[in-house]
């Protein structure tokens, strides 16, 4: 995974609440066996509207997306995160995210920044004309106008993102503990330790 520390540049001022995963990437795009190439299907339905932010030359190619409450609700499809990645979005700022989406984003090195609605309103305004700066180490979002908003992030996720760590590799290093747990379950609850004989 690539290391993440600063995300800086333009932002799509989307602002919409409850952006579900079907809106981010519709089901017909899920028939892929690859992680790349989904950017062209991202926000397909919204892009039917000629006034959409994604095709607006003022915003196209932005690394940041600003949205309303409950971003990424709906399905578990990681294709939503892959689609964002493929279109170059490295961070999403919203008042809240669905649990599954924020996990998927994190696994793909996309920052999910939670800020209160007032901050979102201000950033939506700034994003119309100016860039936004996100500093993961400092846990802050700043603008060229001296705005500064702090955000919280899970320390483990922060370490993984900043170090570009491979989570599976980290867990595999704990194989002994996992084996010990399995042995204990086999003794205590033998019926769970083999499903498909």
């Amino acid at each position: 995974m690539d290391k993440v520390s600063i995300v800086e540049g333009g932002a799509y001022p989307l602002g919409v609440k409850n952006v579900d995963t079907d809106m981010i990437i519709a089901a017909k795009w899920l028939k892929t066996i690859s992680r790349v190439g989904l950017g062209k299907g991202a926000f397909e339905a919204m892009r039917q509207d000629p006034a959409n932010v994604f095709d607006d030359p003022a915003h196209a190619g932005s690394p940041i997306l600003i949205a309303g409450d409950n971003f990424g609700c709906g399905s578990s499809r990681e294709h939503a995160a892959w689609a964002l990645n493929d279109m170059g979005v490295k961070a999403v700022i919203a008042p809240s995210f669905s649990d599954i989406f924020s996990g998927n984003a994190f696994k793909n090195g996309i920052l999910t920044v939670v800020l209160p609605q007032e901050a979102i309103d201000r950033l939506m305004d700034v994003a119309k004309t100016d860039p936004i700066h996100i500093d993961l180490d400092a846990q802050s979002v700043t603008t060229p106008f001296q705005d500064r908003f702090s955000f919280e992030i899970d320390p483990f996720r922060k370490t993984c993102l900043m170090g570009g760590l491979d989570e599976i590799g980290l867990t595999l290093a704990e194989a002994d503990r996992i084996g010990a747990y399995e042995a204990k379950v086999k003794a205590d609850r033998p019926w769970v330790s083999a499903a498909v004989a």
Partner: peptide
């Protein structure tokens, strides 16, 4: 609970997940 594909890979490889 539902998981994303990276977590599917994590479970396949380790039979565990890191969770809060």
């Amino acid at each position: 609970f539902g998981i994303g594909t990276s977590e599917v890979e994590h479970v396949l490889a380790t039979q565990t997940l890191l969770l809060k």
